[in-house]
Design a protein around this nucleic acid. Structure first.
Lengths: 187, 187
DNA sequence: TGCTAAACGGCGGGGCCCTCCGTATCTTAC
DNA sequence: GTAAGATACGGAGGGCCCCGCCGTTTAGCA
């Protein structure tokens, strides 16, 4: 006895596939109705499988998020704690800047009453990044009151602000390096 | 012979006043129709005075922007070039975080064909901030390849990313300080 | 006081989001 | 194999919004 009916699973997959293309093409505010139309289902079905736009964005971004989490685990064993953290953050920037909708999925949405099980995407990333940051703090390469959430928020901010540039990934990377370096040579 | 008819000016003022409240209440994507209704004019009239949402946001933010420009001129004479630049940027953060819509008005919108006379808001800010940055660069307090536009973009990113937090201004300020400090004590 | 041009605003088209509810389809049990 | 029940579907309608058109009003000038 499947937890879900077979046709429901099929539709879920179809919708998700179409949504990936549509979000890639039109960004985080792609039309849900358009997705439904292309997938050949009713708009209600889309809403049934993905109650909120955010839910859909998170599902679309899932693979990328998991890849980033895996990368964090890889880097956790690296010798250079600061370098590992920066490398990982840089990849988060690169992914978010090139895969449209990812940044929006990561952005916290204060509109929710209970923020417990929500933000599954950003929660996963934060958990994966925690060891990296912890090690960097221990090595004195990062301030103690910084959280992974802070870093993710900064990254998301950079990506959001560069979203409309001619070459978002390049610009995002530039600003990220600038941020890492601090305002300038002399502090 | 007025460049504009008297009633047009009146309506402009009415709409702008209503828009300020509405944007303050509902953020950058306040309903233009709601503004028209509250102002007691047709929605076409709103569009006539403010062809794009961005135009309206810029008009709404004009006073704040000018205040920030004035502040930049004040700080231009300060002895501590780095301190002056940081002080100014901090105020940009504070303004943007507390006045809803300002960040959106500042955000570059790549949708425009000719970006010449556009972004009057951010253009003004950039011009006002240029001397501050120039001095900081001369004093070696900022990297040479940094532009005011970069700094504004970073600030806007921080504000956008913290927009949905419980206390946006506080969070934005935190992240700004974190950015200025660089990732950590050891670089 | 007329005339002209500027400004207004109602209206309709198109789109999107959201909800409801009758219907079709899958599962399971017999 | 079939009948019953649960599950999922999707069309339709309401509400809101942005946008453009165009007949009408009104301010400003002679």
């Amino acid at each position: 006895m499947p937890a879900q009916r077979a046709d429901a699973r099929r539709n879920y997959a179809r919708i998700l596939a179409v949504a990936e293309e549509e979000v890639a093409a039109h960004g985080a505010d792609a039309s849900l109705e358009q997705i439904a139309r292309t997938a050949g289902v009713g708009s209600a079905t889309v809403r049934r499988h993905f109650p909120t736009r955010r839910a859909l964005l998170e599902a679309v971004s899932r693979q990328q998020i998991e890849a980033l989490c895996a990368r964090a685990r890889e880097l956790a064993g690296s010798g250079d704690s600061r370098g590992a953290l920066l490398e990982w953050l840089g990849e988060v920037v690169a992914y978010s800047a090139s895969a449209r909708g990812l940044a929006a999925a990561l952005a916290r949405d204060g509109a929710s009453p209970d923020s417990l099980y929500e933000n599954s995407c950003s929660a996963a990333l934060e958990e994966a990044g925690a060891p990296l940051l912890r090690r960097a703090v221990q090595d004195g390469a990062a301030a103690e009151d910084v959280t992974v959430a802070d870093l993710i928020t900064l990254v998301v901010g950079i990506v959001l602000a560069t979203e409309h540039h001619p070459d978002p990934p390049a610009e995002a990377d530039r600003l990220f390096r600038l941020t890492v370096a601090g305002l300038g040579p002399r502090s």
